[in-house]
Design a protein around this nucleic acid. Structure first.
Lengths: 207, 207
DNA sequence: CTATGTGAATTTATTCACAGCA
DNA sequence: TGCTGTGAATAAATTCACATAG
C-alpha cells in the first residue's frame, strides 16, 4: 500500500504517536510494538498499524518498531524536521498559557514573537520575548515567521487574521471562538476550548 | 428520519451551531437559514440540514429556522438546559486562562471549585473562588459537582483523575497531554493544544 | 418560488482476518 | 512463534439530488 494519500484522520493522530514515542525514548526504550503503543494511547493495535502503513513499512515482523526510526519518519511527514518559528498574537491569559506550555517545544516550535494591542503591555517582556504592538505584524514577512497562534478575543480575530495573511503567514492556530476566513493558500486550525466541555454532558449517562 | 441515533460528528458540531445561534440572537435576529449558518461557520448548507434532521424538524420550508427554537432544542440534546457545576484542577497558567475564558459561561457552565497542589496557592483567590488543596477533592461528591477540568502537568494527570473518579466525577475535560484511563461510566475528552499546531506544517504547501 | 428534510450514492475511516517475514 | 503489513469487509460520515411544504 506504499504509495498512498495519508487520510486526514491519520494525520490528526500522528502528533499523538510522536509525543508518545518521545516519552518512550525518555524512558530509555529503543523499540516498541503496535500493542504497547495502543495500550498507552487508549487505541487498538490495528489502527496504529494501518496508520503507519500509509507511509512505508519500518517495523520488523515478529519484533516491533524501532522508536528512533519511527520518530524520524513521522517528523518528516509532519514537516517537523525543520524548526518552525511561530508568532503569538495576544499576550493575555491564554497567550501566557500557550507560551508556557511545554508541548510546543516538544514538537520543535519556537515562539519567536509576541504581539498585543494593549498599549500598557507593549515592550513588557513575557517569557523572554518583548511584546510588540500589533501594528508590527507586517514585519513578520521579513522575519521568517510563517506560523501564527491567535489568542485574542473574538471581535478582533478576523481583522488580525487578515493582517497575518498580508504578512505572509501560511498557517494559523486559532483559539478565538470564531470562524475566520482566509485565502486557500493559508491553513487554519481552530480550537475552542469551551466547545469540548459543552459536549461532555451529552456523554454523561444519567446526569 | 426522526428517530435516529445522532452521529458523534454531529454531536461534535452542535456546540458550534449553538454558539453561532447565540451570537445571531445578540445581533437581534430571530430566524436564519442553513445557508446563512453555513456561511458564517465555513461549512455547507446540506451538512447543517442533515445534522439538524437527526433530531426532529423545526425548520419551516421556504422560510428557514427560528433561532430561539433551535437554540432550545440543541441545548436540550446536549443536556445544557441545566446549569452544570465544574471543578478546575490546576490553578496555573492554563487554569487561569480557562477560568477567564468567556466560552464556559456561554454554555452555562459554572466553575464552582478550584484545586491546586502547591501549598503557596492554597487559600488564595482566583477569579472569586478560593483555591483548595487537592486533598479536598473527595468533598466534590457532596457538592453536586460532576464535571472536572484538568489543567495540570502530565505526571499528575492519572493520579488526579483517579481521585476525581473516586469523588463521583462523571466527565473530565483533560488538558494534560496524556491519555488517562477511567471506568466506562466516566467520559473523558482530551485537548492537547500543541497537537493541533503540530499538524499545521503538514498542511502548509511549500514551506 | 424558496429553503427544508431525507433517502440514495459516494466517499472516507475503521475493523477484521490472515498472509508474510524475521 | 510473534508481530507487522495490508487487502477485503464493514461501518460511518458526507454529499447529492430532489420531493415536499409553506
Amino acid at each position: 500500500m506504499r504509495y498512498h494519500r495519508i487520510p486526514d484522520e491519520t494525520v490528526r493522530r500522528l502528533p499523538i504517536y510522536l509525543r508518545c514515542l518521545l516519552s518512550l525514548t525518555e524512558e530509555g526504550l529503543e523499540k516498541t510494538s503496535s500493542q504497547k503503543l495502543a495500550d498507552s494511547l487508549g487505541t487498538n493495535p490495528w489502527q496504529i498499524r494501518k496508520d503507519f502503513s500509509y507511509f512505508g513499512d519500518f517495523g520488523t515482523r515478529g519484533v516491533g518498531y524501532k522508536i528512533d526510526k519511527l520518530k524520524k519518519q513521522i517528523n518528516k511527514i509532519l514537516k517537523l524536521d525543520v524548526k518552525h518559528k511561530a508568532a503569538l498574537i495576544g499576550a493575555g491569559n491564554l497567550g501566557s498559557a500557550v507560551l508556557a506550555y511545554p508541548g510546543f517545544k516538544v514538537y520543535g516550535f519556537d515562539i519567536a514573537a509576541v504581539f498585543d494591542i494593549a498599549p500598557e503591555k507593549i515592550s513588557r517582556r513575557i517569557g523572554n520575548i518583548d511584546i510588540e504592538d500589533v501594528s508590527n505584524i507586517p514585519t513578520l514577512s521579513e522575519r521568517d515567521i510563517k506560523l501564527a497562534i491567535l489568542t485574542i478575543p473574538l471581535d478582533a480575530a478576523q481583522k488580525t487574521a487578515d493582517a497575518l495573511v498580508e504578512a505572509g503567514i501560511r498557517g494559523i492556530l486559532n483559539f478565538s471562538p470564531q470562524h475566520i476566513t482566509v485565502p486557500k493558500k493559508v491553513k487554519v486550525i481552530s480550537i475552542d476550548i469551551a466547545m469540548d466541555l459543552a459536549r461532555l454532558p451529552y456523554y454523561m449517562p444519567a446526569c
